[in-house]
Design a protein around this nucleic acid. Structure first.
Lengths: 340, 340
DNA sequence: TTGTATGCGTTATCAG
DNA sequence: CTGATAACGCATACAA
């Protein structure tokens, strides 16, 4: 049996209260007794029971991290960022991977982290209002990545800005016939990012006086395969685009694969730009919109720390900048546009 | 304040013991009272306090997952596999990312999951004997991926077999001058996988009667960049290899990049084979040795369930098969070998 | 089948 | 600065 606080108290010849204080570094303990307690604890290789401690103090020392896909590059990167900061403050991560729709349902039905965590970090999950309320009912600070939820701390990138930059980059290169490979627009859970990026695409084209052509929007549903087939569809148009903006790098990868399989090259035949700066983007020399991924995780964790320490009363919102990363898949338009 | 078991007991007009039994589905409760209890709990939106429950029962409902890098494809994939199985059994994942050496040290110094978890899953972490003992002292079932630890459950692939298959594939294609890009051999923590794969490479060459040439072994230290420079070194040899086995797909990616930047092609100029079947391997058409990644996570989780349920007394070991996945980067040797 | 009573290991509130 | 003691919320052995 592991030693308990009582054993330590006996050995140090003090009360359990004093042991508790000494071990937690509270101020009102004389150096002499603190020494004695620490030694006794050491000798018994004592460690506090988190459960008992939580039960008595109300704090759990754990932060729940809820996300849709642990196994995707973006999310695993964010988790790593969160971990860095939380670990340094002795907070543990309780992971909830809600990729599967049924798991998602079950999660909100049973609320397994009720009373389990001191705070919550939610990554890019579209939440119904009922679900938001359910989370709020946990009465712990919540930091959200992506979607904004009232009363929550918030970190995100400016998707409209990033997407606009991407499309403008293509326009600046002389392209006028610009396609977009969109993704996850039809997902029943209603992720908002795809919508925002698509809207920016349309807006920038309109601002540039380029007429809207629905054929140039190829829905892809995320994923490499989907990006590939979307690109194939664009290329089969009577008047195919000279440049393509893919909503995510993943889809851009698929687009590039289609190009190379058809014997076409980027940017000579078609310029391609993605979004995310996925780790593979550099490998494939893909021009893209970069966002600091792990850093967003660190920011979320920092917000949690602020909330927990009471350093900041009001939840803050921080928008991190994206940046255009020009690599080899975008170039000047060489084909002329058709007559309007 | 959240409702406690006492509130439920009062409302259902039974004792707290009965509430506890009814809620956990224990057999010796009449249907009528169970109904009443469930209803009362529902009306009060009651949920048990995990801390109190743990304290009283000794079980925590959590499994610790300790790994070196959450943000790498391989590990995030394994975690997803683990999550699938554990989640289905209402076990939570407590994540410990020990990538940083200092974090690693601190982890073993403080053993933060002592009393926190019912079981432990360790992914590919090379452990000193002291560290193994420290984990064993937690007195919970442990499942280990990769390295074998006495007394622990165990899942792994046959690295020697896989690497041998890779090298034999090249030999069968007529290659005799075969290089290897090795990785992480010098890591102070002493991962064993690199050593095993390298050993297999040497053994197979010897068996084929191909003389050993140390120049053909290019240390790369994992990572795309390292793979790229390792390949550059191999190509700069007076008598460069006609085929290269990269210890991991990541390093193979770097090798491919070097080739394409130098205007060379795979397999026409140099055949390249990797190991892992990383998600990007298909995209780059890389021939590789595939291993079921998420599945290994599921197996680990299943072992933990077996251990926890007492279904199996003795820890089991399972070795999952690898498979040669032939894609486009390996082909018949066209260049003749030099005179021995 | 149900209730009673005790223990689980701390923290925190008082009093000293 | 230190000690006694009441929570904390539940599980379980035992009794009924």
């Amino acid at each position: 049996m592991a030693a308990s606080i009582i054993d330590v108290a006996r050995r140090a010849e003090v009360s359990t209260a004093t042991v508790s204080r000494a071990l937690r570094g509270l101020p009102n303990v004389s150096e002499a007794t603190r020494e004695r307690v620490l030694r006794a604890a050491e000798e018994l290789s004592y460690s506090v029971s988190p459960q008992a401690s939580s039960l008595a103090s109300g704090r759990t020392g754990m932060v729940g991290v809820v996300l849709p896909f642990v196994n995707r590059w973006f999310y695993s990167q964010v988790v790593a960022g969160i971990d860095t900061v939380l670990r340094a403050n002795d907070l543990d991560i309780l992971l909830y991977n809600l990729g599967d729709e049924r798991v998602h349902q079950r999660f909100f039905a049973r609320m397994p982290l009720r009373r389990r965590v001191d705070a919550l970090i939610v990554l890019n999950l579209p939440l119904s209002s009922g679900e938001s309320e359910a989370l709020a009912s946990l009465e712990v600070p919540i930091a959200v990545l992506g979607t904004h939820v009232p009363g929550c701390w918030h970190v995100s990138i400016d998707n409209a800005e990033g997407a606009s930059t991407a499309v403008r980059h293509l326009i600046n290169l002389g392209h006028r016939r610009i396609g977009m490979i969109t993704g996850a627009l039809g997902d029943p859970r209603g992720f908002t990012t795809p919508i925002v990026r698509q809207h920016a695409y349309r807006t920038v084209l309109a601002q540039a006086g380029i007429p809207y052509d629905p054929d140039l929007e190829a829905p892809g549903h995320l994923g490499i395969e989907e990006g590939a087939s979307a690109m194939a569809r664009l290329l089969s148009l009577p008047d195919p685009p000279t440049a393509v903006f893919a909503e995510t790098d993943q889809m851009a990868f698929g687009a590039l694969r289609t190009l190379s399989r058809m014997g076409l090259r980027a940017p000579e035949d078609v310029s391609v730009i993605g979004f995310d700066n996925h780790e593979t983007a550099e490998l494939l020399n893909l021009t893209t919109i970069g966002q600091p991924v792990a850093h967003q995780g660190e920011l979320l964790a920092q917000q949690i720390l602020d909330a927990l320490s009471g350093a900041s009363e009001e939840p803050t919102r921080v928008v991190v900048p994206t940046s255009l990363i020009v690599r080899g898949t975008t170039g000047a338009c060489t084909r002329s546009t058709p007559p309007t």
